[in-house]
Structure formats: C-alpha cells, structure tokens
Design a binder for these strands. Structure first.
Lengths: 233, 233
DNA sequence: AGAAATATTATGTGCAGACATATTATCTTT
DNA sequence: AAAGATAATATGTCTGCACATAATATTTCT
C-alpha cells in the first residue's frame, strides 16, 4: 500500500488494481468488504464504494449484494471504441478533410433496409451516397438511408455542405443504435469510387439508429484498403 | 418532467436525457447548474452530480468547472465493445466450442513482433498457432507470441487443453493493451486452415498486451468469412 | 491599455449517517 | 427431508454538509 498519499477514490482504485495485478488477489478471490477496506485504507465507505464501482464497470470486479466482491475470472475487456464524426477523426490526425455528395434521391427503401430498420416498404426515405476524403485521397464511401417520416427536416438540409451524419448528429439524436463491423470484397463500382481494384479487402461499418422505435437512418460505411480501427483496452 | 416518481440518480439521468432528446436542450446549450436542477427535481446536489457525471461519461454532456455543463455538439458515441473469451462468445450463442493447438514452438521473435511489442530480438518467446471451432466449423485462426521472459509460467501450461488466451487471462493480467481491427485477404495457408479460398475477405483482430512496459503477448486473430462483430451504441 | 493579482463560481470530491434492496444463511413447519 | 418463513448481511443509494479545484470574471496596478 503506497501510504503517505492522500486517500481519494482514485488512489483506492489504483491500490485495488495493484493488488489484482500483483496477484495478491487472484481471479475468483473474494476481496475484503467495503467497510474493512475503508478502515484499512483510512477513508469513508463511500469512497471505497466509488472506487470499486468504477472497477466493476471496467470489468475487473464482480459485485453482488450480500455475496460480496470478487476479482473477475473472465475480465470481459471493454474496448471503449470512440466512434467520432469522420471529419474529426481525419482532422484529428492532421489531415485535410474533404467531402463530396455523390447522389441524393427520394425513394422507397429496399426490402433489406425495411427489414433491418423496421420501416414500412412504402415509407418516404432519402437515399444518399457520398465520399469522404483524407488529404484528397478517398477514405470512406458512405451509402445511407434516412427516414423522412421520422426526420422530415432533412429534406431542407444542404447535404452538399455538411455530411448527412453530421447533420443527423446535430438535429436528430437517437435513443438506440446498433453498429457492426465486418470484412468484404470491393465490387467494381465500389473499387472505382475508392480508387482501388475489385476484390480488394474493405473494412465495413454498418450503423443503424432509432428514436425509440422509429427508424432514423441506416448507413453502410466502406473504408478504403488499409484502414485500421483501433483502441486501447 | 415525469413527476410523482421517486427521485433517484437514474431518474435524473433519464429526465436529462429526455430533455436532450426532445431538443428542449439542444447541442451546445448550457443546462442549469447542479443546485438548480437539484431544486427543480427535488433531490440532493450529489444525486444530480452522479447523474450528470454518468451522462458526461456516456458522451452526452460536456462539463467543466466554473464554465458549467453543456450538451455535446459532437456526442462521441462510445461503442462498448465487449471482447469476451472466444469460447464464451461461441457458447453464448448456443454453439459447440472446439479448440485445436496447431503449433507450439520456442523461438526468437520476428522483427515485426519485436517492434510492436517492444521486446528484444533475442528474447525467449513462445510461438503458438491454434484454431477455434464453432459447431465443428473453423471459426477463428489464432497466431500468437507470448514472452517467456515476462510470463515464465506459460511453459508449464498445457496449451492443448486450454487456449493461450484463456490461460493468460487467468494467470497474467495486463496493465495496458491495444486492439485493432481491419480487413485482409486470406492467404493460401490461411484459407486452407479456415476452409475457405485464397482471396476471401477476413476480419482481422490484432491484440497486444503489456504488464507496465514488459510485453506479454501479441496475437493475430483471423475470423472466418462472414464474421460480424457488433455492438449496441 | 495591458498585465498581474484577486475574487467568484460551478463542478469535483470527501465524509458520516441512514435506509433500501438483493441475496444468502438459518430457522421453522409440515 | 423438503418447503416456506425469517433473519442476517454486503452492496446500492440518498442526504446534507464541507472543502478542493479549475476556470472565468473583476479589480488593481503599472
């Protein structure tokens, strides 16, 4: 225990984590109860509670009323994937961001979009494709459907000036969302747009959002070859 | 404000979120200070503080001392990617998990591993490849390097019975980790192992972990075609 | 006017004490 | 012995209060 220091919740957090890392407390072990730890570390129970609560949220501890607190046997590591607006992601790396609207049409959705987003086959939607550039090179190709029924204001937005995603972030916050990642091969058309060749491996991110049960948007984001998404854990 | 209900931090959280969603408070807006909200909602400031703190952690609010609390203009959505042990991921879907050790050799690392993990070129490492199966079908091919200098106990582990990852989770918790995702094409060898064809698009997950500055392991996890990683946001 | 010192203020955190709640352990009844 | 009722207990949360800290606003000095 690194004594002499001030006992705040952060130091309790670090001390408990240290004991886990040094295997003083092994996976599966029950750790002292809050009151004992508080006494041991010279602080209030509330302070210990705060620290242990954070550690549980981070996946290091399992806590249950009456049963006590144990070190996780399978620390489900939660990679905190920050999904920023593409523009900020690119600018954050010091590159120049570019954006071009390729297509914007008003039409009924494809059966696939209907099923995934849970909207009617006859609903009024905006179908948008656009290309995002980093330092003038193709970075991400976006195909998006936006429900005009749910977000009628979108028809007045100038989507050649601001990307649909950024517009939606500002004007249509969602209550529920889903995101998935996979690997696909570039088709002829996609390859042309991303300036690569058909059959190149592309990283695909699919996003859908709802406001309660009303579908807002479904997007298919295809990243140029070489893209890597990463995160600290 | 949905009155009549009990005022706990969760209900404050939900009420604030509701005001953001209904655009009563728009992105960029400053929201009432904690004392005011507490008075308004009939609870202690500490309770409001807890709610707002969570909302800030979730990315909905930006808070700064003295400056106050504002609704995020760019809610950096944090996808909470749970990275479970593969076995649990497969079993969780009700499929039968299978595991086979393909190779286990003690040797010096490749220059690439050295550079990424920050270990010496002459360090003693374990090089392991294995295949994970779901319902007897190839699911993920794993190539891994483990530093024997950092985790000497690994040489005594029976890695044909337990996967290296599971062993490490139980015996060598890390303090720092990095994970990245990308799309690659299957090589001849990889295709053979995963029972697909060369040039198939594969989802690649690369993981590295350290105990402070000592490299523990570097792993390259190649998922069979069709794999989708997904998450709620 | 511009710089430096000072005051103000909203959030951040700590504390003690109380009660709520989920879960386990124990006792009672059949 | 099995089932049901009851007690015990560790965590979960709320409260009121105090002081810390960072950032802004204001005043003072040159």
């Amino acid at each position: 225990m690194s004594a002499s220091e001030q006992t705040n919740w952060q130091s309790v957090h670090d001390e408990v984590l240290r004991r886990i890392h040094t295997r003083e407390w092994k996976p599966g072990d029950q750790i002292p109860k809050e009151v004992e730890l508080a006494e041991q570390l010279g602080c209030a129970r509330a302070t210990v509670n705060r620290a242990l609560r954070e550690l549980a949220a981070e996946g290091f501890l399992d806590r249950r009323r009456k049963a006590g607190t144990r070190v996780s046997t399978h620390p489900v590591r939660r990679a905190k994937l920050d999904i920023p607006v593409i523009r900020l992601e690119i600018e954050g790396r010091g590159q120049k961001y570019g954006y071009g609207l390729l297509l914007s049409e008003r039409r009924t959705p494809t059966p696939e979009v209907c099923a995934n987003l849970g909207v009617s086959a006859k609903s009024d939607m905006l179908h948008i494709t656009s290309l995002h550039l980093a330092d003038r090179k193709p970075y991400m190709f976006e195909e998006r459907w936006v429900s005009i029924d749910t977000v009628p204001e979108i028809v007045d937005a100038d989507l050649s000036a601001i990307s649909a995603n950024e517009w939606l972030v500002l004007h249509a916050p969602y209550t529920k969302g889903d995101i998935s990642f996979s690997a696909v091969l570039a088709t002829e058309t996609e390859a042309k747009i991303l300036r690569t060749h058909a059959g190149a491996p592309l990283f695909l991110m699919e996003r859908m959002t709802w406001e309660h049960d009303a579908g807002i948007t479904a997007a298919r984001l295809l990243f140029a070859p070489g893209y890597r998404m990463h995160s600290a854990i």
